[in-house]
Nucleic acid binder design. Sequence first.
DNA 1: GATGAATGAGTATTCATTCAT
DNA 2: TATGAATGAATACTCATTCAT
Lengths: 209, 209, 209, 209
Amino acid sequence: MGIQERKEREKERRRQQIMVAAKRVFSNKGFNKATMEDIAQEAELSPGTLYLYFKNKEELYASLSLRILQYLLIRVEHVNEEKDSGPEEKLKSLVDAMYDVYEFDPLIIINMFHLQSSETLKNLSPQLMEEIKLLSRKSLGSIAQIFKEGVETGIFIDKHPVALADTFWALFSGVVLWLTSKKIIDERKDYLKQTLDVGFDIFRRGLKK
Amino acid sequence: MGIQERKEREKERRRQQIMVAAKRVFSNKGFNKATMEDIAQEAELSPGTLYLYFKNKEELYASLSLRILQYLLIRVEHVNEEKDSGPEEKLKSLVDAMYDVYEFDPLIIINMFHLQSSETLKNLSPQLMEEIKLLSRKSLGSIAQIFKEGVETGIFIDKHPVALADTFWALFSGVVLWLTSKKIIDERKDYLKQTLDVGFDIFRRGLKK
Amino acid sequence: MGIQERKEREKERRRQQIMVAAKRVFSNKGFNKATMEDIAQEAELSPGTLYLYFKNKEELYASLSLRILQYLLIRVEHVNEEKDSGPEEKLKSLVDAMYDVYEFDPLIIINMFHLQSSETLKNLSPQLMEEIKLLSRKSLGSIAQIFKEGVETGIFIDKHPVALADTFWALFSGVVLWLTSKKIIDERKDYLKQTLDVGFDIFRRGLKK
Amino acid sequence: MGIQERKEREKERRRQQIMVAAKRVFSNKGFNKATMEDIAQEAELSPGTLYLYFKNKEELYASLSLRILQYLLIRVEHVNEEKDSGPEEKLKSLVDAMYDVYEFDPLIIINMFHLQSSETLKNLSPQLMEEIKLLSRKSLGSIAQIFKEGVETGIFIDKHPVALADTFWALFSGVVLWLTSKKIIDERKDYLKQTLDVGFDIFRRGLKK
DNA sequence: GATGAATGAGTATTCATTCAT
DNA sequence: TATGAATGAATACTCATTCAT
């Protein structure tokens, strides 16, 4: 291992350290109430150091989204690689993957919607934005692939696979967001899992020919 | 018309004038980037005047959400009052209502998620919060009522009506939010309508016994 | 009574109504925290009306000081007019007068120190300032007159009467202010009267030859 | 000198720098008219820096009062430590101490009355308030000790030492405040010293049995 | 690389005062 | 006279970002 490589590795470790702290702080306070000072303290670093690893606050935040997208893509591609499964089995696996993604970071789903703000986008480096776009596209593409198979083999109803993928993802994130926000109205906790079950069940039934 | 009544009417007109301006500004810039100064300018009023009609920025923002909830409730209750329609027809009408709600204010769905921030709630008057909670509850209840009829008459699958209502609403808001945010990836506009169609279609199919 | 005179009388009544309200509000909140809106509400008038009777907030405030000065002057001159009393009896009466002045408005003593701010003076009409100056001078002069008699008749120690008058007044307002502010340290109430007694007692003893 | 210690020293220097500037600005404009911007400019620092050293405007202001209380306590305790002096000599020394306190900061006496506002107290950290209370109590206690000795040895009249201490302090601050405010009426400067002399002289005479 | 003190632009909110009715 | 809605200047405080050490 060259000295160059060791440095690179060390640098990546620091980035991770900061991101872990940032995730915790953003989760607790939300993007706007969380300060760089908070995150620095959580990471046991100084505010200045954060800027050695991330261009600015927005980019640090976006990096967290990138992380879940990476996780999502791995899980979804894994589903697609199940050679012996048919579309229906894959759809089941996909649902399981979604549960895992939610467990991976229940709050970052909310965060991902932060990216839509045009004001936010202005502060992201084109490079990072490209990466996010790419991962989104790939993940959605991979999900769409499952539906494509189902549609082509005549098992699923005849809709455009991309629209199906979008619907599937929207259902998932919609339930998560809606029930998270419904704490205003209601306060039961396990209810999220139940509603996801109901949602995915209906989706699967509605999808079959 | 008494002088009292005229004043009341004038006052309401001002509130609306401000809300229209606020909606425009918040839509363009998002809650945090929008300044009260911006809104005042848009409304052709002075900043101080805004505070004669709304306690603070958060409450002005929340009032916008209240507005769509009011519209939503009216539309949904109207659906429930269709005496000659069975659950399936009502579900179709409900879908139409959702389209209208979206047309009424495409961005306010996003705004409604702002309400979940505990920091936000602190600055809302209990009165306004109560109203929002009540309207949410009523609307959801009214939607659930449709599903309840369907389940009881054995037309819909046997799930808890409230969970069905939540799923339905989550699907709707999920699609809206997701496709709004997907401008990062894609930029076609009519695609939203199409995806909503796909989503509702699958939902209806999956719901039937 | 002419119509002119009746109007004048009515106007004066309004001024008094406002000043009574202002005194109450300023006493509770202090000059800076009290708003013209507060005072208007207390007076059951609209904010605009206040400005028909007082040039601005500072002037309304100063008018209250004027009021106590008027009361003070009357009481002190009355003491001086006691034809049969010698300086010692008059000093006793003066002490009684001070107690009355304190009862008349315990908090306005504090307020009178507000007048010293040069920023405040800028906003007062020269006319009002002149009146205040005049009353202060007259009251102090009248107090000094008592001491002058005592000094000249050889009953009091040989100091400049004006300095004695200033010392007397300073002792009085010092005790009031200090014990008012001492609520930080201590909290007994009757203690003010006691300390005033001690102070005046020492003063009288020290004054005698 | 360790690096830790040097930093501490540097930090204290900054606090002093700010307090010196604040004293100047508050003296000229009074608490309310003085802006943090003014003080920052006077200190040749940015507004934000002020908040690194003082929690808020009120606390910066109160810190000035703390300073004179510290000075007062040292001077008064020093008087009490004069082993060879009797109560009368100590009272003379106390009077000298008061002159010094006045010279130390002629305007801060006024400032100390600002502390009485309950609105002010709300914004002070409990810690700072405790310190102020403690110093006040100690100083007054130390002054009372002098009078106690005099009363017990039968040299002073038989009054409660605490009441005597309060009267003494009230006389002092009353004269300072009154003559400061009398600039409205009069404008001679040396007159303050003279009146203090008269006041203390009468007080000492009245105190003796 | 790491620090953390300093920066200073940015903003919600208040409130004395005005003026059309 | 009286009103009270509207004004808009004024300001404490925050916090992302920088840079000398």
